[in-house]
């Protein structure tokens, strides 16, 4: 028989002290790194809000940019342009994204094809946005020989699809199978079950997922650089260059003029607020559980 371990021995005590020392050290390091990350990031946010808020005024939302050297002016045309491009992108990207998500959740369960689609969507999600810009440029701008809002919309739509697909799938998977069975058992055709039962039950989550995708591409600059291209005036035409908020922020940020810097900060704040609202909404739905009360 082994002699009983002497837990009071010097070596045991040292070992114990060492182990607990390491434990505390690592705990401290983890807390420190969290602080190292959180503090500067909060600082970024606060700085943005401070600089942006002091730049916003009524003119910002109602005027087009003033010529160089003059003060005043706003980014109204850029916001309108962003709106137009985003509506275009959403009208293409959201239906396709939701439909692909429906396929994955309702038709593709256990199928190899669905796995491949899922994987491709995740990979597509990681492709740099500038590549989407070049692709849309090569397809549309090079053919039409001029920049256009439409080309920008296509680039952004491609970026929206994989995100929306995966969110839709995820949200549909939270709908209990028993509810689908209830509808099918009543003799409701499958398409109707998917639309009126599955999608309807998951709709809060899917809508917020779409908002998130929308907010994400709303801040994208790279795909618009050589598609929407930007301009300094009001423009409503889809086949002409159009201003967009993130593009304008970029142009103003690298310009040498203080007045334009001011506008850039204001634009950044507007973008951030939009994103904050959508992320918060998603958070609320995710935290609350999309299906409160569902069995």
């Amino acid at each position: 028989m082994r002699p009983p371990t002497n837990y009071k021995s010097r070596s045991m005590r040292l070992n114990s002290a060492w182990r607990y020392g390491i434990n505390h050290l690592v705990t401290g390091l983890a807390i420190l790194s969290t602080a190292l990350v959180i503090v500067p990031l909060v600082a970024i946010l606060v700085y943005l809000i401070y600089k942006g808020a002091s730049s916003l005024n009524l003119d910002f939302f109602t005027h087009i940019p003033a010529p160089v050297g003059e003060t005043g002016g706003g980014m109204a045309n850029a916001m309108l342009g962003s709106g137009i491009v985003l509506v275009l992108a959403s009208s293409m990207g959201i239906p396709v994204g939701i439909a692909a998500g429906v396929y994955l959740a309702e038709y593709g369960q256990g199928k190899l094809l669905a796995m491949a689609v899922r994987f491709t969507a995740d990979v597509l999600n990681g492709i740099p946005s500038i590549v989407m810009g070049i692709a849309a440029y090569s397809l549309i701008v090079m053919r039409q020989m001029h920049f256009s809002a439409f080309a920008g919309g296509v680039a952004l739509a491609i970026m929206m699809v994989p995100t929306i697909t995966r969110t839709t799938e995820e949200m549909l998977m939270t709908v209990p199978h028993s509810i689908r069975e209830a509808a099918l058992g009543l003799g409701v055709p499958k398409w109707r079950t998917v639309l009126s039962v599955s999608l309807r039950t998951a709709s809060p989550g899917i809508i917020t997922g779409c908002m998130l995708a929308f907010a994400r591409v709303a801040g994208e600059t790279a795909p618009l650089l050589f598609t929407a291209f930007g301009n300094q005036f009001w423009s409503f035409k889809l086949n002409e260059p159009i201003a967009a908020l993130p593009l304008q922020i970029y142009v103003y940020a690298i310009s040498p003029y203080d007045e334009w810097h001011r506008l850039a900060w204001g634009g950044a704040l507007v973008l951030i607020l939009m994103i904050m609202v959508s992320v918060t909404l998603v958070r609320i739905y995710a935290g609350r559980g999309v299906l409160k009360g569902a069995s």
Partner: peptide, 28 residues
């Protein structure tokens, strides 16, 4: 033509009582 009642109650969570009962007709 065949009604089915499942092991666990499975109401449609987004629908009112009325819509739940009428669902077999309304959804068709």
């Amino acid at each position: 033509r065949v009604g089915m009642v499942f092991q666990r109650p499975n109401p449609f969570p987004t629908m009112s009582i009325y819509d739940n009962v009428a669902s077999g007709l309304k959804l068709n």
